[in-house]
Structures are given as C-alpha cells and as structure tokens.
Simulated assay, not measured.
Amino acid sequence: MFHASAASFASATPAPPPMMPPMKPWEYLRLRREAAGLSIDEVARRMSPKLATRSEAARLAELLETRGYRALHNKPILRLASAYPLDPSVYRQLADLPPEQHPAVCRGCGSSYWDTQRGAEHVLVSWTAPHTCTGCVAAQVGAA
C-alpha cells in the first residue's frame, strides 16, 4: 500500500510551462517575410519597381520590423502585403489589442489560425501546439 501526503503529491507535480511573451507586430512581419524567403531588399524590389523609390521602400520595410515600432495606419502594412503573404488584420490585432485578445500566431513562421497555407510550399496550416504550426514542427523534425 502506498502512503503519501497531499503535500508530497503537490511537490511531485511538474510546474506548468512558462507563458510565452506576447507576439509583437514587428516580430510578426519579420517571421512572415522570412517564411516567404525574402530579404529586405527583395521586399523593397517587390514593393517598388522604380529604382528611385526602392531605397525608400527598403527603409519602410526595415522600419516596420524595428523593435518597438508599429504602423499607425494600414497603408504601409498593405504595401508590405503586396510583397509577401501577411494578414493585415492579424498585424492590427497584434499592434492595437491587449495580449489576451491576440490571435494565435506560429512562432516559427508567423502563420495565423486564419491562414490556409504556409509559405511558398503551400502547406495547409494546422496546429500542434498553441504557438507552433504543423509545418514548423515538420521542418524541425526534418532538420534534426
């Protein structure tokens, strides 16, 4: 017969995993750009075919990925969305709402719950954990 106090069971119970910090809007943009396999210069080229405004587009793309910066209006986010797949409504939620109202976003690629496909390989998005999509888990397993 096994005898133990409630205190010994409580101490044997593993602690819950630490909470992940909330996703920041600039992190979301960087993850989506990287999932598309693009550099800042490639994004600028897609945003602005004119060489004269390409450096301006690169500065904008870089600024929007700068820690602590967020776009106040949708126009710059829509310009980025013309260069690579991202969801402007997810960006707005991350930028404007408290963390408890943020959508689920994969910490590996930036796919959100509402995305139907992940990256250029067009893999359907589903979730293995609250912050990891199946595509990123498969990529981690393949890399190991």
Rank of each mutant, 00 (worst) to 15 (best):
M1F: 00
M1C: 07
H3A: 06
H3E: 03
A4K: 04
S5N: 03
S11A: 15
A12E: 10
A12D: 09
T13Y: 06
T13E: 11
A15D: 09
P16L: 13
P16I: 02
M19S: 14
M20V: 04
P22N: 06
P22S: 08
K24A: 14
E27Y: 01
Y28Q: 05
L29N: 01
R30E: 13
L31Q: 07
L31P: 00
R33M: 05
R33Y: 05
A35M: 05
A36P: 01
A36N: 00
L38R: 00
S39I: 00
S39G: 01
I40A: 03
I40V: 15
V43M: 00
A44P: 01
S48W: 00
K50V: 01
L51N: 03
T53P: 00
T53D: 12
E56V: 05
A57C: 02
A57Q: 01
L60V: 01
L63Y: 02
L63F: 02
L64F: 01
E65M: 15
E65A: 05
T66K: 14
T66S: 14
T66G: 03
Y69V: 15
R70T: 05
L72V: 04
H73Y: 12
K75G: 05
I77C: 01
L78K: 11
L78Y: 11
L78A: 07
L80K: 00
S82A: 15
S82R: 12
A83W: 03
Y84W: 06
P85N: 04
P85K: 04
P85L: 03
D87H: 09
S89P: 00
R92E: 14
R92Y: 07
Q93H: 09
P98A: 13
P98K: 14
P99Y: 02
E100V: 12
Q101D: 15
Q101V: 02
Q101L: 15
Q101G: 02
P103M: 04
P103V: 07
A104S: 12
A104G: 03
V105A: 09
G108A: 13
G108C: 10
G108F: 07
C109M: 08
S111F: 00
Y113V: 10
W114Q: 09
T116C: 02
T116A: 11
G119A: 06
A120V: 13
A120N: 11
E121K: 15
E121N: 12
L124D: 09
L124V: 10
V125T: 09
S126T: 15
S126C: 10
W127S: 02
T128Y: 03
T128Q: 10
H131I: 03
C133A: 09
T134K: 09
G135K: 06
C136H: 08
C136Y: 08
V137P: 00
A138I: 04
A138F: 04
A139G: 06
Q140M: 11
Q140S: 10
V141S: 07
V141L: 13
G142D: 13
G142H: 11
A143W: 11
A144T: 13
